[in-house]
Amino acid sequence: MLEIQGVSLTMEEGQTAEILRHINLRLAEKKIYVITGPNGGGKSSLAKVIMGVYPPSEGKILLDGQDITSKTITERALLGLGYAFQNPPRFKGLKVKELVKLAASTNPDKLNIGDLLHDVGLCAQDYLDRDADASLSGGEMKRIEIATVLARKLKVAVFDEPEAGIDLWSFQRLAETFKFIHEKYDTTIIIISHQERILDLADEIILIANGEVSEQSAKDKILNKILKNEDCCSSQCEKGVIQDAEFAG
């Protein structure tokens, strides 16, 4: 079980910005959670705090009761946390198969690298020997990123907008694949998404807006609220609010 207790995140870039505020979440084993909410709400930031990329300014993170707040990214990875990036980095000179092999190297199960690519809708023979660099399309790189997380035996897997850039044809297969690893390894799956079809996979939906959890509940209860878009902005926001804005044209 993953517990997030009173986690806040501030960043200093010129001025101090409060990105996450007192996040409390308990994520049980074998469940699929979908985190949704407006752009800039703090979803990816929360994922990065979980993975250890950003240290929280306040609060604790516990994995199966163990406090992992001060553990490094590597340590968390070895404890069974995984994160598929929203914008995966690319690597000059590193082949797709090398990247996926690295990902699979800590998995005690022997996995077929080609089948992993197949699971994310890529023809293995076309991609294994290609470089995981800028020559891949956005959707191709995104699928490879997902494959690197599917390759691992994880307690908690976070997928950051896995459907972004993925064509409809592959989408269905991806949904099946999530279910499959979920059952195979009892992984707690957290999917950050804006897509209703992904929301359908969820046991529970978590709504994050303005750096706070504004709701955590079953899907049907939350959907109405999302569609009404109540949590859009931190303060009232209408056209014309900024008086002396610059004008284009």
Binding site: I73, T74, A77, A103
Partner: peptide
């Protein structure tokens, strides 16, 4: 080296 690249590989279990 791009820090995102390092983060990605560390999140797969590699040391820095």
């Amino acid at each position: 080296i791009e820090s995102e690249q390092l983060v990605k590989l560390m999140s797969l279990g590699l040391s820095e």
